[in-house]
Amino acid sequence: MAAAASAESSPPAPGSLVRTADDKKPKGHRWYLGGIASSMGTLCTHPLDLLKVHLQTQKGQGLTMLGMARNVREHHGLSKLYQGLSASVMRQLTYSTVRFGVYDSGKAYLTDNGTKPLPVYQKLFLSFWGGLAGGLVGNPSDIVNVRMQNDLKLPPNLRYNYRHAFHGYYRLATVEGFAGFGRGLNMNLSRAVMMTTGQLAVYDQAKTMLIGSGLFADNILTHFAASTMAGAAATLLTMPVDVVKTRIMKAVEGEECSAVNMLRQTYQQEGVLAFFKGMTPAFVRLAPQTILTFLFLEQLRLVFPVR
């Protein structure tokens, strides 16, 4: 009896998977950190996002990213490289908060708060549903973001002239009605799924493989390497969808802008390479955005661990 009592009261061996009573209590996952980290990254990379939108919507001009940057500077001033920043931040606070929240909360549930590994197919499953939910919630902010950025290229009579994100929501609702919030939704959902797969699932898997190799530790170098791989994967997966989505969202009222029509029109008028227009600036924008997002996220997780 005494021996049994002693065995029951003795602490678990170091490194064992025996869980204490406190460990077995449900833990609240800080699902919102992904949106905050993404917003922090956007504050640093917004000008690159604006140039990407301008390149994707140009027709026949053939400007490079640097040429587009010079064009914006000469005609509008350097400050306009931050045109639409409020909508870009709101997009991350909606879209990225939800997709990271679904992925991280689902991962915590499926792995019993990290006590067992997550298979690749489950990472893909979570990224699919996270991207779908994030794309749905973030669609209005994405529309306003694209329109505010693209206004610089339009003649004054065709501009939307949204003063900030909330003014854009108001105008979108009053001018186009509830249906206006769903403009380009199909393409945006497709892009969100591809983006979330390329970023979250690839980052998660790359980080796991790097650390599992024994050559890397769970530190900033590993986070940088994994997020660079995630940025490259996300760029490749999302480019065709992103081009079509951007063109649909910037279309003026009355213009035919269904996904099928835009796909056909873009292919017939500009060829298949048009679907990869702006790929270099897209990578130049998305890679830093992805790297900064995950670097910020890993640091935020240290400051605000799960409880």
Rank of each mutant, 00 (worst) to 15 (best):
A217H: 10
S88R: 05
S258W: 00
P14K: 12
Y170P: 00
S79T: 10
H164P: 04
L295A: 09
N219I: 11
R73G: 02
D49L: 13
G60A: 05
A7L: 08
F178T: 10
Y160H: 04
L81I: 09
M90H: 03
G77P: 01
G254F: 00
L215Y: 04
F283E: 14
H76K: 14
L189M: 13
P14A: 11
C257D: 15
T246W: 00
K25H: 08
Y267R: 05
P12Q: 03
A179F: 11
T197S: 06
S127I: 01
H76R: 14
L126C: 02
L132P: 04
F128M: 10
P11S: 15
R191H: 06
G67R: 03
L118D: 11
L185N: 03
S258H: 00
T97R: 02
D22F: 01
M194A: 13
M249S: 09
K24Q: 14
R30K: 13
Y160C: 03
K250L: 00
G130Q: 03
Q58N: 04
T228I: 01
W31S: 04
T280P: 01
A225I: 15
K116P: 11
Y95T: 07
S38Q: 07
G278T: 12
G77W: 10
K277D: 11
V243F: 02
A206F: 06
I291F: 15
R247E: 10
A173Y: 15
T174V: 15
R73P: 02
F128L: 10
V252D: 14
R99Y: 02
M249E: 15
R264C: 07
L172M: 11
M194D: 06
L292W: 09
Y160M: 02
A251S: 08
